[in-house]
Design a binder for these strands. Structure first.
Lengths: 229, 229
DNA sequence: TAGATATATACCAAAATTGTACCAATTCAA
DNA sequence: TTGAATTGGTACAATTTTGGTATATATCTA
């Protein structure tokens, strides 16, 4: 496992790191983790810090510690959660959004309430005021798509979109958006967002889904164009 | 209007920026934010500005600060994969599959190789031999849909489908399938699987997607029927 | 100009981390 | 069986980090 030596680890950071290490498959269920002293050396922290992190994981039910013996991984085997998401390519991400978001729009049509539209309008207003600020627009755009998922009320979809958004917040992706997001692009996106919300408001599921497809197609095009140059 | 990227952040700007950062998923509930000194450096503002922004967020109830410890995101416990997936309702699951799998079929059309069809054929043969064994059929059916995702070659889709499938193996769900899966149903599903694979083989993406929608609609119907009785 | 806001710096008290030492339970080889 | 080695459990003081606060300066706005 690669550890960023330059970053200091706090207890909560170490908890997350250990959980990731376990769920990423480095340690299988019933496996014994390295001893606390080894872990403390490996992560560059004191043994007490490792202990508090392991205690938290034990409260979560991820591991089980047996005095004199060791700390063992409990529970079912999980897929490579974070690594998959972190290593996804831009085109894979777009394809995944192509799968998810048009149908999210259909479901949003069935569930949207007036309060939801108020949130959407406020968000779109803010996005239009951020036309000259790609970084700000990008954050608001992420929030916009997360909000659409929330409106569906489907916890699975909300969670999946949140996972996908966690990719978009990574440095590598912020850099890429910087290359593809010019002011014209932002105006186009704003227009498309308005159209999508209008279709949802008018309770036209198929039209909303089609508009979302068009929106994502725009994003895919600007991505492939920037990759070609 | 000229674009000024190095524009200074005001307190209210920073408040909005932090709120978006939190709600977009970069920081999950119960996570500790970076220290005020680190945040001030990251956003290029003075520590006092960060403090006033965090104070505003605390008044809003978004975060909670503990002297000597840090500032924490308030809210429900972090949505770990297990919990989200385990608590999803049957209808939520179907809706999520409605979003994912038709488009997976389109992508599969673009990527399927002869070796993939061999695997699919073998799997469908096995499923047809298991018509009188709901448990075994269900296991193979899960594998069938996972294989379709694998054929897309999209690591994100593969991972998402795997996560969703992990639900279907839980006890509660096995019980539910027991109620909905009779031999006629299994025959119908087998027929639909054959049609979907045929459409992929004939490189007809839209037809494959539509057949998958029909397939999922069958599943949804049998679910609602069993819930009604 | 006068008020409001942001910056920069310094110091405090609370909390966390560190480093060390020792204890008790477990493991494993002689 | 015995005993050495390893493991987690615990305690304690020193150090570092963190939020809380105060002060002085600079900058912008009405």
């Amino acid at each position: 496992m690669a550890i960023d030596e330059s970053k200091k680890l706090s207890s909560s950071d170490l908890t997350r790191l250990l959980r990731q290490t376990i769920t990423s498959g480095e340690f299988s269920p019933q496996d014994r983790l390295p001893s606390e002293r080894v872990l403390s050396e490996r992560f560059g922290t004191a043994r007490g810090t490792v202990r508090s992190a392991l205690a938290k994981l034990e409260r979560e039910g991820v591991v089980e510690t047996r005095p004199g013996s060791g700390t063992y991984v409990v529970g079912e085997e999980r897929m490579v959660t974070n690594q998959v998401v972190a290593n996804a390519s831009p085109l894979e991400l777009i394809d995944a959004r192509f799968a998810l978001e048009p149908h999210s729009c259909r479901l949003a049509v069935l569930n949207a309430r007036s309060a939801d539209f108020e949130k959407l309008e406020a968000l779109m207003d803010e996005m239009e005021q951020a036309s000259d600020n790609p970084a700000k627009f990008s954050e608001l755009d992420t929030r916009f798509h997360a909000l659409l998922a929330e409106i569906t009320g489907n916890s699975l979809l909300i969670w999946i979109v949140a996972q996908i958004n966690s990719v978009r917040n990574q440095e590598q992706w912020k850099l890429m958006r910087h290359l593809t997001l010019n002011e014209d692009m932002i105006h186009a996106y704003n227009r498309q967002h308005r159209e999508i919300v209008a279709a949802i408001k008018q309770r036209e599921p198929e039209r909303a889904a089609q508009l979302m497809k068009n929106h994502l197609e725009s994003a895919r095009l600007s991505l492939t164009r920037s990759a070609a140059t």
